[in-house]
Design a protein around this nucleic acid. Structure first.
Lengths: 206, 206
DNA sequence: GTCTATACCGCGATAGAC
DNA sequence: GTCTATCGCGGTATAGAC
């Protein structure tokens, strides 16, 4: 029998902290989360946590950065695909919905940041997403002008879409109560995803 | 000249506290708001504030109760109107959108509570809104069955609508950045309201 | 009804031993 | 890399004077 090397599926302490921080920040928000909560979840003490990250703010920043890079990566693939018309819009919708289904905690943090106006981040969140927003608005407007999509205000349509896509996941504790069922079961997530796709399709495609 | 009675437009200290608390809780959340913040906004000291409300939680509860009663009151009027078909759906949408346009802070608190799952309230928030939700789902399903509305999953449609109606107001700091303009100017609110109405109309009415 | 003073706790952060 | 110990700050809440 060989020497006990760390098993491959054993994550590093730093990654465990990032995972636990994601969970706590998503559930209780920045101010509602203490470093004690996170450290306890990992099984270490608070000073040990601060050995890996210089401050609470820095830890939060790293959590958010991971979120944002995954989101932008998936968005990039969908946006740069060769699909046309509705197919492309559906690809973008699914890219977001699938990511959010995989990691609903991302959505809750994202929503909290939108509510707070990004005060906990050094970066300008809207600024980062603005290029995607403007490009999407241009695309929608183009398809409307060609008569492929029904006519709506492209920018307000995007905001409505943003709200529709995020809400089911971000407000899942509330949705649980409305549905009297767990919102985030695979079946319910699937049902909601297909609903959102069909709904936007029926509003846009003539 | 008569004796200096409190002028009519001078609100009581208690009401001033409720107003300031609404503002703070909406902007910074429950955990992000200190009683010092609220007291300072009113121009009194923290202990004086605790003379009017027994605790932070009780104050928050009163703020939320005021919000909820106004919302339910406006919803009741719309729901019990004699309108039929799309007209009734539009009345309900406008009842919410108009209230939220008047007091966007209500929306931000409501959203924060939905995110947190109602932990700061003694009441069951979803439980209070559930009767409206169920009744609305029945109505939509009935109109779909009659062929007045296009067919969608009624309950998921309501959640999508909830998200679309709240998001523009709740996430206004983020929307500011996307639009590169103040989301909550009267003109922009009006544009968004009309967009949401038209959008849902085009998805539902055949 | 508002004030001062204070008790008590948990927070983020630092220093230094092992 | 993790720990104990400690600091300073700000939080909620209470007691009592005016």
């Amino acid at each position: 029998m060989t020497y006990d090397a760390p098993t491959a599926n054993q994550r590093s302490t730093r990654d465990q902290i990032l995972d636990e921080a994601l969970l706590c920040f998503a559930q209780k928000g920045y101010d509602g989360t203490s470093l004690n909560d996170i450290a306890a979840g990992v099984g270490i003490r608070r000073p040990s946590l601060l050995h890996h990250f210089p401050s609470k703010e820095a830890l939060y920043g790293d959590v958010f950065e991971r979120l944002l890079s995954e989101w932008l990566e998936r968005l990039d693939i969908a946006v740069n695909s060769s699909a046309q018309g509705w197919d492309k819009a559906e690809l973008v919708l699914r890219a977001c919905l699938d990511l959010f289904a995989d990691t609903p905690d991302y959505v809750r943090i994202m929503r909290r940041e939108a509510l707070d106006g990004g005060v906990h981040l050094g970066i300008d969140l809207s600024g980062v997403l603005r290029p995607f927003f403007d490009r999407a608005a241009e695309y929608l407007q183009g398809e409307m002008n060609k008569g492929v999509f029904a006519t709506h205000d492209a920018r307000h349509l995007l905001i409505t879409g943003y709200g529709a896509v995020l809400t089911y996941f971000s407000d899942s504790p509330f949705v649980n109560g409305l549905l009297d069922d767990e919102a985030l079961t695979p079946e319910n997530i699937r049902a909601h995803t297909e609903h959102v796709i069909a709904f936007f399709r029926s509003a846009l495609v003539r």
